[in-house]
Design a protein around this nucleic acid. Structure first.
Lengths: 207, 207
DNA sequence: TAGTGTGAATAGATTCACAGCT
DNA sequence: AGCTGTGAATCTATTCACACTA
């Protein structure tokens, strides 16, 4: 998971939550916020929030709190969300299509440049204005368009193979929807979206 | 998150991964497996696997390993996946429909009994053989059909309200797809599926 | 011999508690 | 007076290392 990072990964995982809550508060007209109020909103202790932020600098004013808008900006910069991140979808079956078409799925700062699939009946078509290209063009397309992120929505049977293929490209991060535990090198950033695992782990707590 | 459980929640979250990997191995004809081999498959240390399992009993044979099929059965029982869990979908917009229609999304042991929405144009229709009912019938339907799990796919603007509504029913667990941090009592089991947060936390690690 | 099960050791994350600023 | 920033203390999770056994 890269980066001899000052901040632990759990902390990084919370920063987007902070941004989201702060953005809502900003829209609601809040200009200043305390760690207590923010924590209350997110069910996170104030101490945790302050500690998290302290990995990156000193953004608050003692006795007052944090300026909402400037904290949003700081966090956005820390995460690199001020840039545009070119992305691609790999696999344009039912799931891939749903992702591409889901409005507001891809947040600001991310752009899906192209989609890849091996099904000849899909190639050349476009989904939601995104061109579907054959898999064997992925390496060059990724390079040419400076794509760093792949959203993987292929069947689990081929997922590991596709991932291995992606390792040959300039892809640096994979958001994986296939229900597998992929083997990737330390240098690649991976997140799994796996609702089935979530479901199956909930039942333990039900009587 | 309930259950003065012997086992920490992180452990519970890994058990479904073990089941999945073991099932694949079983299909591949493996009958016996060591913690080392399993760990290798899942990128988890053997010590961790043994420790995790030790919370629930002694399932292995020293010098040999674990019998694949009986370990699957043990873990299935521990998680309560031997029963059928009646579930419902709340919100039958684009996302809800995608979930209902996605083949193999809902794993064995789970059954989606009904769907709820407030849109009058949807009510009475069926999606993939599942009836769409109005929201105000949810309490009685949940009771009547012994539904314990809700899959929440409503717009984030109404998500917290809907969750508050769910708290009045017999729903015990929520798989939440809305991009919010819901407030729920300790007694309710909650998992969030939030690909946007995942995306936004990946960029930190990209140059 | 190969691999489990588990206390003890280590590493990591969260919370406490308070000095210090506005 | 109110709230930040942060070392120190605590709590939690992971890994080690080895006695034990099939």
């Amino acid at each position: 998971m890269v980066k001899d990072s000052i901040a632990p990964e759990v902390v990084i995982l919370r920063l987007p939550l902070y941004i989201r809550a702060l953005s809502q508060m900003s829209e609601e007209g809040q200009t200043v916020i305390s760690s207590k109020t923010l924590g209350n909103r997110l069910q996170i202790t104030p101490a945790q929030i302050r500690k998290d932020l302290s990995y990156f600098g000193r953004f608050g004013k003692q006795g007052r709190g944090y300026k909402v808008d400037s904290l949003i900006e700081e966090l956005t910069n820390i995460l690199g969300l001020n840039k545009q991140w070119n992305s691609c979808i790999v696999g344009v079956g039912r799931l891939g299509k749903a992702i591409i078409n889901y409005p507001g799925f891809v947040p600001e700062g991310f752009k899906i440049i192209s989609a890849f699939d091996n099904d000849p009946s899909l190639i050349g078509k476009t989904v939601n204005e995104i061109q579907i290209l054959p898999m064997d063009e992925i390496k060059s397309a990724v390079k040419q368009n400076d794509i760093k992120i792949a959203i993987l929505a292929v069947p689990s049977t081929v997922a590991q193979n596709v991932i291995t293929e992606l390792l040959n490209t300039n892809i640096k991060a994979i958001l994986n929807y296939a229900p597998i535990a992929p083997k990737v090198p330390e240098t690649l950033v991976l997140r799994n979206i796996d609702p089935v695992i979530s479901l199956q782990s909930m039942t333990y707590y039900l009587d």
